[in-house]
Design a protein around this nucleic acid. Structure first.
Length: 862
DNA sequence: GCAAGGTC
């Protein structure tokens, strides 16, 4: 029997589609990467019985990057990134082993059906899948077609079955347009980012951003925030005057009237109108009207709207909201949360979804009534052909979900119920009055039927006192007429919700990437999130955008993306040649880049106002080995040392504190050593600022401290302080931290393993002798008489931390407290290995016998 | 160390 391989874009879709096509009779198992599943069933294909294997990828299989040597910032001129620097496709997520997985599943298959999302990215992934799978599939017989594309616009039985019945071919042009986009984004983004970062970081010491990035989406996003800032700055308040009148409708009731002219900007004119009205005793009713109006129930929920509400009403940032939604989705509480669609599919079981909520403690009443009286047909929304709108999939309580997950779920559910509720109907009554020659109006709203606002009470029409019943010609005594002086007020900073709307409107990013771009400009310290989730640009953000405006406004305008996208669409439609468009667009941006580099002084003038030059920043810390003057320690990210005399900058390890290390010097270059520490619960090591940037030995790399230095005789080096191979990681060596006493530590120089040992010992040294059993270096430990934990009043002991029974009682293995990404996973990652004493049960062999010190060192540098 | 786009 022949086999048909079918591939969807994500695991959830593979499952849904397989369920539909197999009518529920499939068998499933996890693939080798643990992320994707394979669903198998039998059926017919091209008129023959076949075995179907439905699986998926996880988004893009491949990603584009420069060849390794072009990723060295110091060695490559960013201008080379436009054409010379070659790119290569790499696996997007090496941990997923997607190519291998596809090949294992695809080996020996006869046909392939591509079920990737029906957009350009999906078309591109089709070819990524084919590149991986075609070489291992069975060869076609004499020109038989083996590659098919399924095109579907929703995940419904009819749509999926129709797609299966009318298979087509993948569209190469659409895929090519994505290849072009990837290459453009990479080359342009990286060239500008590297140039800006190097240029400004080499000049200013208080930029407080380790990366000054540029991108066709993030830069216009920042541009919106700064545009609002500029409006606020240039705002000039204007004084205006308003006539306000009160009429008495009853003994003790009065009505406030709005002036039909709204306001005037001339005090004398306002005074004139006041004079014309203030002596009038009566207000005459000119007209009354009553109109029934409706407030529409919401459209079905899509991602962008969910993010807007999460930000503006729930106070949750887009990134956080998306993570929360994804968790709710994988736990089965809501449907797939990434969709542009606001229209329910025709066969969507609205009543079924509603019934699930019929016993919910918070909204059972509303739901039961809707079910009994009949639901309202949802409004016609937009069908983007991706996924159904976001809806609850089962009932959940506050106690079950808790916190933000509950708040988001509650919103999604209330929104869903609202979409099948009735519109809110209210009566708008207006009374028009004449006082002297001037007209005034008073209007009020009374609810006829609350409709959906019952489930979304924050949308409800506010309760107002009802207007008096009256008719044309009636008069009321005038209570008071006065002039109010007011001022126009500036707009406020852009809210996140407004920014999302602007991005959506200008096509900046996609539903999935909008949160990422907003997060980016926060992380790069271009904007800060203020109360009410308003985005306030920082000095850096403002200077960047003003600089672009000065040099080349197109770099920051939202049109930068849409203009390129127009070109890309020509490729997708087969109207333009991929190579030509790519070459032409790169050429345009290359020119822009060179012009930008030549004009950078224009942006620099703005930088100078806000930031201080390197030489004027930081405080003196340690001496330069070349001129023996003090270098200044610049704490702002990226933290570094700067010698203003030699005009040299030395980068330092990040995310920790830097102190002078007892004025000790490196024997190689005479620079004073500094001590890096990640905090009291973490680890610390000395480093030479020069060696850290210019590795002294061939077997060392940039960014190594003394605990990784192979100097044969320096007292701070790995050679003298190293003990033996790390108990957890492959390549690390445990090194004594000579500064850690009296709570002594031995820490791995690669991973975050730390052994706390010999508390209160007053001296710990690494001996030249090694252990007979494991060949690790012995430690020579001295205790004070009063505090010695050693048996029999001893104060000194020499032994092996791994094998010596006396020491094993005094050593405790831990993980350094650290937020560094390298150390993610931390404690508890490995069962039975992470915490507790570094002690093996008696009689059992050491599971990872430490190698002798020199072979550990040798292995370390391979 | 960089972009933006998929998704886990």
């Amino acid at each position: 029997m022949k086999t048909v391989l079918m591939v969807a874009e994500k695991p959830s879709l593979a499952q849904s589609i397989a369920k539909i096509l197999s009518q529920g009779s499939m068998s499933s198992h996890k693939g080798l990467n643990g992320a994707c599943s394979v669903h198998e069933y039998t059926g017919t294909f091209a008129g023959q019985p076949v075995r179907f294997k439905m699986t998926s990828v996880c988004g893009h299989v491949m990603t584009l990057d420069f060849l390794g040597k072009y990723n060295k910032w110091d060695k490559v001129d960013p201008a080379e990134l436009f054409s010379q620097a070659p790119t290569e496709k790499r696996e997007a997520n090496p941990k997923l082993n997607m190519v291998k997985f596809l090949q294992v599943e695809g080996r020996g298959c006869d046909y392939i059906v591509l079920w990737l999302d029906c957009d350009k990215e999906g078309e591109n992934i089709c070819f990524e899948v084919l590149d991986a799978v075609l070489p291992v599939m069975n060869k076609a017989h004499c020109g038989e077609k083996t590659v098919f594309r399924a095109r579907f616009s929703s995940i419904t039985d009819t749509d999926i079955c129709n797609a299966m019945a009318r298979l087509g071919e993948p569209d190469h042009n659409e895929a090519l347009s994505v290849d072009a986009r990837q290459e453009l984004d990479l080359r342009i983004g990286c060239a500008f980012t590297r140039f800006q970062t190097k240029y400004f970081q080499g000049k200013y010491g208080d930029l407080d951003s380790s990366l000054i990035s540029f991108g066709p989406c993030q830069t216009p996003t920042l541009g919106f925030c700064v545009e609002r800032h500029d409006k606020i700055q240039s705002f000039k308040p204007e004084i205006y005057w308003v006539l306000q009148a009160k009429v008495n409708t009853d003994k003790d009731r009065s009505l406030l009237l709005d002036w039909d002219r709204v306001r005037v900007f001339d005090r004398e004119i306002a005074q004139m109108f006041l004079n014309l009205t203030k002596l009038e005793k009566e207000a005459q009713v000119e007209a009354t009207s009553k109109k029934e109006k409706a407030k529409q129930r919401p459209l079905a929920l899509n991602t962008v709207e969910m993010l807007r509400v999460a930000s503006s009403s729930l106070g949750m940032g887009p990134q956080h909201a998306m993570q929360t939604a994804e968790r709710l989705y994988t736990q089965g509480y809501i449907s797939y949360p990434r969709t542009e669609t606001t229209h329910y599919p025709e066969n969507f079981d609205l009543k079924g979804s509603l019934r699930q909520q019929a016993n919910h403690p918070y909204w059972a009443n509303v739901v039961k009534r809707l079910l009994a009286e009949g639901i309202n047909r949802p409004r016609k929304g937009h069908d983007a052909g991706d996924h159904p709108p976001i809806t609850p999939m089962r009932s959940a309580t506050e106690a079950e979900l808790g916190g933000d997950a509950w708040r988001l779920y509650e919103y999604i559910t209330r929104h869903f119920i609202a979409t099948v509720s009735h519109d809110c109907k209210y009566l708008q009554s207006t009374i028009s009055f004449r006082i002297g020659p001037e007209l005034f109006t008073c209007s009020g709203r009374t609810v006829i039927s609350p409709g959906f606002t019952e489930i979304m009470p924050w949308q409800s029409v506010p309760l107002e006192e009802s207007l008096p019943t009256c008719q044309r010609g009636d008069t009321f005594p005038v209570g008071e007429v006065k002039v109010l002086e007011k001022q126009t007020s500036p707009p406020d900073y852009l809210t996140e919700a407004e920014l999302i709307t602007l991005m959506e409107k200008h096509g900046i990013g996609t539903d999935a990437s909008i949160p990422v771009h907003i997060n980016n400009i926060c992380q790069r310290n271009y904007v800060t999130v203020e109360s009410g989730r308003r985005l306030k640009p920082t000095n850096l953000g403002i200077v960047l955008v003003h600089g672009y405006y000065k040099i080349d406004a197109e770099l920051v305008l939202p049109t930068i993306r849409s203009a390129v996208e127009k070109q890309l669409n020509l490729i997708a439609q087969g109207k333009a040649d991929y190579r030509q468009v790519l070459g032409h667009t790169l050429d345009v941006f290359k020119r822009k880049f060179h012009y930008f580099v030549d004009s950078i002084a224009g942006m620099d003038e703005l930088m100078e106002v806000s930031f201080s030059p390197l030489a004027a920043t930081g405080k003196p810390l340690s001496r330069c080995g070349k001129c023996h003057r003090f270098m200044k320690y610049i704490q702002a990210k990226p933290s570094r040392l700067h010698c203003s005399h030699c005009d040299e900058t030395y980068t330092l390890p990040q995310n920790g504190t830097i102190k002078l290390y007892k004025e000790l010097r490196c024997p190689l270059d005479d620079f004073e050593l500094v001590l890096w520490s990640s905090g009291s619960r973490g680890k610390s090591y000395p480093l030479c600022p020069y060696c850290y940037n210019h590795p002294p030995f061939r077997d060392m790399k940039k960014g190594m401290g003394c605990n990784e230095c192979t100097h044969p005789s320096c007292q701070h080096s790995l050679s003298l302080l190293g003990i033996g191979q790390c108990v957890e990681c492959e390549s690390g060596v445990l090194v004594l931290d000579p500064t850690s006493g009296p709570k002594w530590k031995v820490a791995c120089n690669k991973c975050n393993v730390v052994a706390h040992c010999f508390e209160n010992a007053h001296r710990v040294r690494v001996s030249a002798d090694t252990c007979n059993m494991c060949e690790a270096a012995l430690l020579d430990v001295d205790f004070n008489k009063a505090k010695s934990p050693l048996p029999g009043d001893e104060t000194q002991h020499v032994g092996c931390v791994f094998c010596d029974p006396v020491f094993q009682e005094l050593v405790e293995l831990k993980h350094a407290a650290s937020c560094h990404p390298m150390h993610r996973g931390g404690p508890g990652r490995r069962q039975g290995r992470g915490r507790g004493r570094a002690r093996r049960p008696p009689g059992k062999p050491n599971p990872r016998r430490p190698k002798d010190k020199m072979s550990a060192l040798a292995a370390y540098f391979v």
